[in-house]
Nucleic acid binder design. Structure first.
Lengths: 190, 190
DNA sequence: AAGAGAGTAGACAGGTCTGTCTGGTATCGT
DNA sequence: ACGATACCAGACAGACCTGTCTACTCTCTT
């Protein structure tokens, strides 16, 4: 057997193009406003091919969310070595840098969740899974840094992270950036 | 001249019913997924009447956002008397209580903004206006409490507020509730 | 008395949405 | 050589969307 026996992981050029195009459009314009026709047109893929790889649009949205999660996990894994404290700070520094950029449109998970009210929906479950991973990442880094209350502080950092992504999307980036720095020092000191 | 000479403020039973129905549906299910037909059906209003009061759906959405802002301002104004510090705490206590309820679906402003990517859109501007009011409210209460850095701390509180509304929508309410309390004490202790 | 304004019911136009289906081509493993 | 798989182009169905329009009723103001 070849390397990739995983069920859903089968890749193909057309599928990748669809997913990449969908990611770009969904992030920039939202999920419900972007139609299948537009995605396949910009991806240069036939409609039958699209429905061959994704049984429905919701499956594509779920794949989009899952893909974004994988990208974030890969980005964290590829981060330069350092102490847990340094890594934690680097994560927030990266979000701040990215959030201040002109292409920033908020957090794909938070934005997509706003369009899927039902918590039981597969898309929402994929989002919930990524949020658990994020919180656990914070907790592990805090614990590795010897923080006395890693569990609760991780919850606070998630709170801060959500405020960050919303603020960078809706408010003045410079103001949000300094607020995040200040909040981090107050939270981690306390 | 009678009391109400303000341009847009003219009220009517049918208009109120439309706005109230739209608020309920938009909040629970999102803006783009709820159509005009459904709103007028549930509001018991003819289509011509709807378009008589609201030139387009976007005008209704803008009215929805503006109305939510007015409700929040009224709620704060109707709060029991107390010191600035007590009032600030009461605001966060109220959000926590409300956010833990079963009907909570996140912040209407944040959720609606996720469906309107263009910052120049009237809907987005109405949202931005409410966010400025919120931040200034925090700043005034902090200043009234004699906080040494009311400006920057207000930004942090807004950060925390956004984390709160997102967290209560997507995560376990109990966990978020304790995290907010803890974060508040750490941030305000400074 | 008369007209303006608010209301109702519902048909209609023109567009967009998701998803299906037809029909044909190319590549690849066996 | 052959069957499976991936891909293309595009028509089509059926639903839903926003917004317009006709035609009529009721009530208030002047």
């Amino acid at each position: 057997m070849s390397g990739e026996t995983l069920k859903e992981r089968r890749s193909s050029p057309a599928r990748d193009r669809v997913l990449q195009t969908a990611a770009r459009l969904f992030y920039r314009e939202g999920v419900h406003t972007v139609g299948i026709d537009r995605i396949i047109a910009e991806a240069g893929v036939a409609k039958a091919t699209f429905y061959h790889h994704f049984p429905s649009k919701d499956d594509l949205v779920r794949a989009y969310v899952t893909e974004q999660g994988a990208l974030q996990r890969a980005a964290v894994a590829a981060m330069p070595e350092g102490s847990p404290r340094e890594r934690l700070m680097a994560i927030f520094a990266f979000m701040t840098e990215f959030g201040a950029g002109p292409a920033y449109r908020g957090c794909p998970f938070v934005n997509t969740a706003a369009e899927y009210p039902d918590p039981a929906h597969p898309v929402r479950q994929a989002i919930a899974e990524h949020r658990r991973w994020t919180r656990d990442l914070y907790r592990d880094l805090l614990a590795g840094d010897g923080h006395p209350d890693a569990e609760r502080t991780a919850d606070i950092l998630l709170l801060l992270r959500d405020g960050l992504v919303v603020g960078f999307d809706l408010d003045d980036p410079a103001t949000v950036g300094t607020a995040v720095q200040e909040a981090l020092s107050r939270v981690l000191a306390g």
